[in-house]
């Protein structure tokens, strides 16, 4: 009887060990370190947090993360939804889906370089090799430094890269849900004379809403941690800093472990609502009691 009670722990033991060492313990330790100075030897109270919320670059980073959350989440989910509904009506659905989904397979670093080339800038008289500035030239506009014009153009350009990568993810999930909707209901509404927009607003959207919230939450969590795209394309220069890149800089460039820890805590704080939403959802679905 004794050994039988031990058996489960043999199965989850290794996982528990690894999770404790790599996630649980360090998270708690980071919380502790966030109250100490750059070398973690002097207790300095809330100074790192005051820095996190008052430093000028940090404020830029906070603003940019807000921009990312707003535009990235809205556009990936919206585009994903539109594509899911539109593609259901054509026969070459799979091939288009593969095309939209493809960027999910490549690294953010790769995507960063790909798009840096799209945004490439040359002085007005030189031949433009970036496709966007070449387009501008056709319409007789001056070339634009897409990644330099702050704060709107360059941040939106970076966000576009994120959207290019993640829309496929949203589309795949939303499309699966869309296809599982009861088709009789939609047919019946159509027979009753509802137009496509009314069907979408009155039937499709409410039925898909739970999935849309799940997808949107996932996107918010992803985008709060955005790092690679910014690191590769601008490294946070020209007012494009984001929280995760700032944390990396504090850690490796400025070697200030106290501040880096406080910034990490800020990330956790921002993600906390998502954790709570997840837990509530699992509870409702009976996965946890």
């Amino acid at each position: 009887m004794r050994t039988r009670r031990l058996i489960p722990w043999l199965y989850i033991g290794p996982a528990l060990l690894v999770l404790t060492f790599f996630l649980l313990y360090p998270s708690i330790h980071t919380f502790y370190l966030s109250f100490f100075g750059r070398n973690s030897d002097k207790f300095i109270g809330l100074k790192n947090y005051i820095y996190t919320f008052t430093n000028k670059t940090m404020l830029t980073a906070l603003r940019n993360n807000a921009l990312w959350v707003l535009f990235f989440t809205t556009l990936t989910v919206l585009l994903g939804l539109i594509l899911a509904v539109m593609l259901d009506r054509v026969r070459y659905e799979t091939i288009i889906k593969s095309i939209i989904f493809m960027p999910m397979a490549i690294s953010f670093v790769g995507a960063g370089v790909i798009w840096k080339f799209v945004y490439a800038y040359r002085p007005p008289l030189a031949p433009q090799i970036g496709i966007l500035n070449a387009l501008l030239r056709i319409f007789h506009f001056h070339p634009l430094g897409w990644l330099i014009e702050k704060p709107w153009v360059n941040n939106l350009c970076l966000i576009t890269v994120g959207i290019w990568i993640w829309t496929g993810f949203c589309m795949v999930i939303l499309s699966a849900t869309y296809k599982s909707l009861p088709k009789e209901l939609i047919e019946a509404a159509r027979v009753d004379g509802a137009n496509e927009w009314q069907i979408f607003r009155g039937i499709i959207l409410p039925l898909m809403w739970p999935t849309i919230t799940v997808v949107a939450t996932t996107m918010v969590v992803n985008v709060l941690k955005v790092f690679d795209i910014v690191y590769v394309m601008t490294n946070g220069n020209f007012g494009t800093e984001v929280i995760a890149n700032r944390m990396y800089k504090e850690m490796f460039q400025f070697r200030n472990f106290g501040r880096a820890s406080a910034i990490a805590m800020l990330l956790l704080l921002l993600i906390l609502p998502a954790i709570l939403i997840n837990l509530r959802r699992f509870k409702r679905q009976g996965i946890i009691r």
Binding site: S27, H29, K225, A244, A264, M265, L267, L268, I271, I275
Partner: peptide, 10 residues
């Protein structure tokens, strides 16, 4: 969903 950044320094 805990950000990896939380774990890196320790």
């Amino acid at each position: 969903v805990v950000p990896l950044q939380m774990t890196m320094i320790p």
